[in-house]
Design a protein around this nucleic acid. Structure first.
Lengths: 267, 267
DNA sequence: GCAAAAGTGTTTCGTTTACACCCATGC
DNA sequence: GCATGGGTGTAAACGAAACACTTTTGC
C-alpha cells in the first residue's frame, strides 16, 4: 500500500468497509465501537472499518480492519449493504460496505485490546459518527431476519451452552420473551442440537470441545480469551453456574436438514 | 460529468451499479438484459447499469442508468448487495452495488425501447457477463425472502388484478404450487386487498384506476405501455380474459397493519 | 357442448400456546 | 431453608392443509 498518485479520467468515490460486531454477555446484546480521536465526529464512536485495498474483497478488507483496530480475529461476516448517501462523510464522497459479525461470548469483555475499542450494550449506545446509527439499525434488522432462518445465535455463544442461555440470546436479539418449556421443546425439535454428556473432567467448564462437530466451521473463533473484566456492570453469574444441561450445535445435522429444505425455525 | 483527470493518493476501485429488473407476463418471471457489444464478454448479456456519478446515491445512479439503457422509468429499488470480488471485471478493479426492481406487467414486452434490451424468462437465461449470474442468484434469493414479509408481488402486476393472477405470480417466484382456495382465503384474510367493483365501463379492461389508493405510491409506474409484442413465445391469453374479480392493493390498509406489527404473510 | 379456469366452505390435521410442579444450586 | 433458576408433559386453541362441485367463457 505504497503512497503515490493515482489518476483516473472520472472522479471516483472512496470505498470503505464497516463492521458491526455483535456480542452477547449472557444478558445484553452488545456492539463493539471505537472512539474517534479526530474530526469529524471527534469523540463520537464508530464501527471498526477503513479503506478497502485493491487486492482484497470487501469481506477481507472488513476483517483486516477489524483485526487491526480491535484485535478481534473473526472469520464470518454477513453483508448488511452498501451505504452511498452523497453527504454521509462531510469530507468527501465515501461509500461504505457494511457487514455484521458475531463474536463468541468468551470474546466479549475481552476485545478491548485495542486502545479505544469498547463494548456497549445496545440499550446504552453512545453518539455514533457519520451514518453509523443508520448502519446499526440496518444491521440489527438483518440480524433479526437472519435469526429466523439460520442458526446464527450459536455464533454468539461458546461452543457449549445451555438452552436457557440460548433462550436469553434469542430474547435479547428479538426483544421478546418466550415460554421456557416451549422454547426448549422447539429448539430440541429442530434436531440441530446435540447434548454434551457431562463427564466429571469437563463438568466445571473445561474446554475439550473438539471431540465432535462444532459450530467452528461456520463461525469459527477457537482462541479462547482468558480475561473477563467487564466494562459495563453486567452480572454474568447465571452463566457460570455449574449445572444445567450443556448442548452443542450440530452443524452436520443442520447442513443435512438445510440441504433437504427441512430446516425451519420460526419465532 | 466532464472528462478530466482526478488524482488520489491511494488507488480507488471504480464503483458501478447494476439493476436486476424483474417482470411477470402472467406466466413466467422474467428479467431485463442488455447485450454487450464490446469486449469483454462481447455477445453475452448483462444487467443494465454503469458508473456511479459523484452527486448521486447508488439508488439514483441505478435508476438513471436503467432509464438511459432501457427506457424504463421506475422508482423503486431494493438493494441486493455489493459485489467486490477482486477479479470480477477482467479490465480493472470494479465494485458494483446491485439492486433489484419490479416492472409492472404492462411494461414487460415493451421495454425493448432501447436497441438491445430484451426480456428473458428465468427458465431461459442466456450467457451472462461478469459475475452477473451470481448477482442474479442473490437477487432471486432476496426477492423470495422479501416476498414473505412485504406485499412485493403487486409491484409486478398492474394496478388491478385477479387473485389467480397473483397466485401465478407467487408460484412463479417461489417455484411452488398453491391450492386455489387456500391461496384465495389467505390473501383476502390479510386485508390488504380491496375489491374493484366492476362497472360496465371498465369491465373490459379500461384504465380508470385512479379512483382510490393504489400501489403507485410504492411501486409507482403509471405510464401504460400500449404495444404488446412478445419476444419470447408466451401465451398471455389467460390474463386478458374479461371476467374474474378484480382486486387492488390497499396500501393505506397495509401501512396500518404494518404499523401495528399485525401484517403477516407466510407461504 | 366441451375444455379451461374461476369462485366458494368445511373438515382434518398439525403446530403453537398456555400452563404447574418438582429438583438442583447458592446463599 | 429459602430464593433462584432449570427441567419436564398435557390440554386447548388456532392456523394450515386437504378437498369437490358449480359457473363462466372461448372455441
Amino acid at each position: 500500500m505504497q503512497k503515490g498518485h493515482y489518476t483516473y479520467d472520472y472522479p471516483r468515490p472512496a470505498v470503505t468497509t464497516d463492521c458491526v460486531v455483535f456480542g452477547f454477555d449472557g444478558r445484553d446484546l452488545k456492539i463493539l465501537l471505537i472512539e474517534r480521536g479526530l474530526e469529524p465526529y471527534k469523540g463520537a464512536w464508530a464501527f471498526p472499518g477503513g479503506f478497502l485495498n485493491m487486492d482484497e474483497t470487501a469481506e477481507q478488507g472488513a476483517l483486516r480492519e477489524l483485526k487491526e483496530e480491535t484485535g478481534l480475529d473473526l472469520n464470518y461476516l454477513k453483508q448488511v449493504g452498501a451505504f452511498s448517501d452523497v453527504d454521509r462523510d462531510p469530507r468527501s464522497r465515501v461509500i461504505t460496505i457494511a457487514f455484521y459479525a458475531l463474536a463468541k461470548k468468551s470474546k466479549v469483555s475481552g476485545g478491548d485490546d485495542a486502545a479505544k475499542a469498547q463494548w456497549f450494550s445496545l440499550n446504552d449506545v453512545p453518539r455514533l459518527a457519520f451514518d453509523h446509527d443508520l448502519i446499526l439499525r440496518k444491521a440489527m434488522q438483518k440480524l433479526r431476519e437472519d435469526l429466523h432462518f439460520e442458526p446464527i445465535g450459536f455464533g454468539l455463544l461458546d461452543n457449549e451452552f445451555t438452552i436457557p442461555e440460548l433462550q436469553r440470546l434469542y430474547e435479547a436479539i428479538l426483544g421478546i420473551q418466550f415460554d421456557r418449556r416451549n422454547f426448549h421443546k422447539k429448539m430440541l425439535q429442530t434436531g440441530i442440537l446435540e447434548e454434551v454428556e457431562e463427564s466429571p473432567t469437563n463438568f466445571y467448564g473445561s474446554h475439550n470441545e473438539m471431540r465432535s462437530m462444532s459450530i467452528d466451521a461456520l463461525f469459527s473463533d477457537s482462541i479462547p480469551n482468558p480475561h473477563a473484566s467487564y466494562s459495563n456492570a453486567s452480572d454474568d453469574s447465571r452463566s457460570t453456574r455449574r449445572w444445567g444441561t450443556k448442548f452443542r450445535f450440530n452443524k452436520r445435522r443442520y447442513d443435512e436438514l438445510k440441504e433437504d429444505g427441512n430446516f425451519k425455525l420460526e419465532f
